[in-house]
Amino acid sequence: MSTAVVEAPETIEPAVSKAIAPSRGQRPWTFYVLAGLFTLYVLALYGPMICIYILSFQDIRGGLVFPMKGHSLHWFVDLFTQARTGDVKGSFDRSIKLALIVTVITVVVSFLAGLGFRRRFVGDNAVFTMMIGSLVAPGLVLGLGTGLLFQALGLNAAWYTSALGAQLSWTLPFGVLVMFAVMSRFNHAWEEAAYDLGASRWQTIRLVMIPVLAPGLVAVALFGFTLSYDEFARSLQTAGSLNTLPLEIWSMTLNVTSPSLYALGTVTTIVSFVVIAVGLGTIVLIQKRRGGGSAHG
């Protein structure tokens, strides 16, 4: 009978160590503080708007304050049928058209500015500072000034002239700043590679730069559209005789005393969200088509 003694290896310790094990323990107290703070923030941000959305769904007995009186789509119908609520359809049309024009100009100019600012040029700092200046200038004053200037020049203020200009003073700096952020991630070797392969400057822009920068350009467009669509301060003194939608809503708050005002708020919010969803959706789609980083070995 063999009596081989197998000694237990006493010195080997279990491979589990606290430093390696993932922490599944409790969250630190700071998590709950921040979570509470964020909840309050969201409530403060969306609470007032949600009140308006809820109140817009009352029935014909509805008033401007809680409690809810029934529920129906009455005030939405009212919004588009009764003339006494103001020129909702006309102002909505104008706002959309103006926003589209602003968007196109913002995208084109921001893209060109992005191209221009790739290299340093004489006066680049001055241009940049002036741009930021127009961003921080008080909108109401800027709008007032634009209105006065048009008057002094004997021009009629209108949404497609003076209001367009006043809004661009706001959307262009935004668009250019977004474009800078986008361009900073553009690899200039792509441009050189295109040149190396025989592409002309225009071909490089069309076949390389625009497609690569497309998500950024969509973001700029999104900024341009939403900033213009709900722009109030700069448009107030520059829109002329025909109102844009935010101005129309503002004037309605002065003379309309029915929940159709709230219905209008709900509709415009939906439009805003649709635009944002389309914009973000486009970016996601572009990035998905590019297979965003799903590298294979």
């Binding site: 690899n187 070797a189 792509w190 050189e192 590679a193 190396d196 392969l197 690569v212 497309a214």
Partner: peptide
Amino acid sequence: RTAMMFQSYALFPH
């Protein structure tokens, strides 16, 4: 009649 291969390859990502 030259062609360059760039350091990070500079392949067009799209």
